[in-house]
């Protein structure tokens, strides 16, 4: 269990995290989503006691991270890819970390096996590819067999096989009852791995929701209807939970809250001709972009926003 309580952190004039509060629960994979520069890494560093919040508190397992007597058994973290001295072997890197907390050497062998680096454990880490560096970082995070696992962009640099592997690993860890908190700027990746999402933008909380809930919001997609009798069809369809909007063309309607089949059936029953009936799917990516659009730190001058984005609900910042 991780509790972030009203945390604010600035670097000079830049406010990286702005009165952010959320809770990460055990037993599920929680995705930490946001565009680049949203404050994800800063938040994770504050969880690990590496950066000090200007105000607010972060507790892990009920205590500040620094107050744990065996911190590696409490929390395992991967904060940066390849944060390893290039001249040191994978084994010695893990040994140096294990010794501080009194973790037995047998556990080093175990985590090396777990990430598949046993055969190169004695090679200098400088010769590792980015993907192998990530896996060594994951081995280090799991070294203390921690209750809480924090991974900052763990899929960066992994090949598709590695990505699949890490998804399974994270789900397994969560199933064992651990708290798994994974940051990413790709919602597509998180949709496959995480059950719960914490979305941030410009250091503020944008959404604290489950992936299913987000999907449901998004699934309220619209249907584009073309009919010569738009006014009558519109009146016929509009109802609780159904929105009908007319576009610039008097023969066109956008209907949300009803699926294409229902609209077609009702039009037929009322004898209204329908010339086109096009369901408009909205992807999770679109939903994510919609959510974070106003909080993207570095925005290209003309960001092509997809049309047909359902509504503006959930737009916090």
């Amino acid at each position: 269990m991780i509790v972030v309580d009203q945390v604010t952190k600035s670097y000079g004039a830049t406010r990286a995290v702005n009165s952010l509060s959320f809770t990460v629960r055990p037993g599920v994979v929680t995705g930490f989503l946001g565009p680049n520069g949203a404050g994800k890494s800063t938040t994770m560093r504050m969880m690990m006691g590496l950066d000090r919040p200007d105000s607010g508190h972060v507790t892990i397992g009920g205590k500040a991270y620094v107050d744990h007597t065996a911190p590696l058994h409490e929390v395992g973290a991967l904060l940066e890819a390849k944060a390893i001295h290039p001249g040191r072997s994978a084994y010695d890197h893990l040994l140096a970390l294990a010794l501080t907390n009194g973790i037995p050497r047998r556990r080093i062998t175990e985590v090396l096996d777990l990430v598949g680096l046993t055969s190169v454990a004695r090679k200098r880490a400088g010769a590792f590819s980015l993907g192998m560096g990530q896996r060594l970082g994951i081995a280090a995070a799991l070294l203390g067999d921690p209750d809480v696992i924090l991974l900052d962009e763990p899929v960066n640099g992994l090949d598709p096989e590695g990505i699949l592997w890490i998804r399974t690993l994270l789900k397994d860890l969560a199933e064992e009852g651990r708290t798994v908190f994974v940051s990413s700027h790709l919602i597509s990746e998180m949709a496959l791995t995480a059950e719960h999402l914490v979305v941030v933008g410009r250091g503020r909380l944008i959404a604290d929701t489950s992936v299913d809930e987000l999907r449901r919001t998004v699934a309220g997609a619209s249907v584009h209807v073309r009919t010569p009798d738009a006014t009558r069809l519109g009146r016929l369809l509009v109802d609780d939970g159904v929105t009908v909007t007319s576009g610039p063309d008097p023969h066109e309607l956008d209907v949300s809250g009803l699926d294409a089949a229902t609209i077609g059936d009702r039009a037929l029953a009322a004898g209204i001709p329908v010339h086109a009936l096009v369901p408009h799917e909205v992807s999770l990516e679109d939903a994510f972009m919609q959510l974070t659009h106003d909080s993207v730190e570095y925005q290209p001058t003309s960001l092509a926003t997809s049309e047909g984005l359902a509504t503006t609900e959930g737009q916090a910042a």
């Binding site: 690990m48 991270y65 911190p71 904060l79 501080t100």
Partner: peptide, 14 residues
């Protein structure tokens, strides 16, 4: 320079 310091200080937060 390697970033190892963050792993070190996470292991020994004091």
């Amino acid at each position: 320079s390697s970033g190892m310091i963050r792993a070190t200080l996470a292991a020994v937060p004091r």
